[in-house]
Design a protein around this nucleic acid. Sequence first.
DNA 1: AGTAGGTTGTAGCC
DNA 2: GGCTACAACCTACT
Length: 535
Amino acid sequence: MASGSGSLMWFRKGLRIHDNPALDYASKGSALLYPLFVIDPHYMKPDPTEFSPGSSRAGLNRIRFLLESLVDLDSNLKELGSRLLVLKGEPGEILIRCLKQWDVKRLCFEYDSEPYYQAMDVKVKEYAAANGIEVFSPVSHTLFDPADIIQKKNGGKPPLSYQSFLKLAGKPAWASSQLITTLSSLPPVGEFGNCEIFEVPTVEELGYEDPGQDEFTPFRGGESEALKRLKDSISDKEWVANFEKPKGDPSAFLKPATTVLSPYLKFGCLSSRYFYQCLQDVYKNVKKHTSPPVSLVGQLLWRDFFYTVAFGTPNFDQMKINRICKQIPWNDNEELLTAWRDAKTGYPWIDAIMVQLRKWGWMHHLARHCVACFLTRGDLFVHWEKGRHVFERLLIDSDWAINNGNWLWLSCSSFFYQYNRIYSPISFGKKYDPNGNYIRHFLPVLKDMPKEYIYEPWTAPLSVQTKAKCIIGKDYPRPVVSHDSASKECKRRMGEAYALNQRLNGKVSDDDLNSLRRRLEEDQNQEVKAKRKRK
DNA sequence: AGTAGGTTGTAGCC
DNA sequence: GGCTACAACCTACT
């Protein structure tokens, strides 16, 4: 109760010591500190109905990354004379139970703008208020407070373009203040009575079996790893100063073309604000540097842009009743979706990327673009929400606002509308990696295919296929669609869908969408018939 | 009402 | 590596 002398630090994201205002405040003026993490079954419980090992929300790679981050957090807390208390269950309920049983006068946790936590936090705050417990919930996951930008600076609506976001956001308030990056010690952990406290579990303890995979993500979770990676990334000042995102090589995998700090930012193992300040320090000491949107700081601002729009847009993660999302008659073709998801489209560039996603949980941004475009408006015309689900589970850096924002972008449903610009599943990869080394690594079945054919193996003469020990249609699939005709058909459908959205001023009903879907399919059948006749 | 600009398209040319 | 045509969308702002 309010008479207590302890603080409860509730970790969700923000799995770090450095620049953690909630932790800093919790540790000040309190005789006791309870650092808590709750293992949420929504996120961690095995779901055997899913297409890959993991829960319904997260694949095994990301679950493992989170556990590693917790182990590291626990060990960093121990160095400061504390430890991490791990509990299991629905986090909101568990937290309230802890507040009831423990000696807590102050509850601290990082503000989280995702709908899932917004709903949970309302209940927790209500309980705290009713019981005289002080709540401190600072914005420290992002550079800016999304609510501040939307309400105070833009009259209640989120900006829908990056440029307008930049103008509204300006410089962060804390840009030139000293962030607290180290703590010297923490108060001792209080008595936790009959609460059953766990150590950080292993994946096996969570009920997962060894998936028997030959290759796993090379990225280890945790604040220590994040800071090491940050230091490595910014040590090359020229590289930082000249960074231009679109110029990176998506096929580079031995040494990725970006920092790969995204998974650490996702879980808050790395503070985006600290990263921002480190980058500004580099910029100060060089003659010239790149700028947003392409620079490294630009990447952090992209992150905040998507957080802001996502916070200000109800139903951001779906097509229907989403104010900013174009209504498009996507198909529901399970076979095409499965081929894409399981790296069996017959396009090696696409399939190699999907294998990297499955094994590493990370691919270059442009590689993500290629497969997202291919699944949706480029070739297969499958609903972006299906692709979103696959990314959401498999990416180690999957972040609700950013993942959904990028699927809206790539499917030309919002933010980006030039649907005639389609990534070629053949030539896009080839211009970076003409020898196909990336494909050879992630699709070893094609490792002996001559480079003349590796992006289009179905065009290789049978003698070449035999010599490469890879028969197309047997050892590696034939293309599920022909890119030339499929992309043309997609453009036609997008054009029709856009016209419908414009005509109805965005108010497209299920019936409108279904009748367009029927018409498009009829047109396509007629077209196919006409083609046959001509032959 | 009209226009500029938009992180990252492709193919074909030099 | 850079230029052009291709076909053409939207948002933000004048």
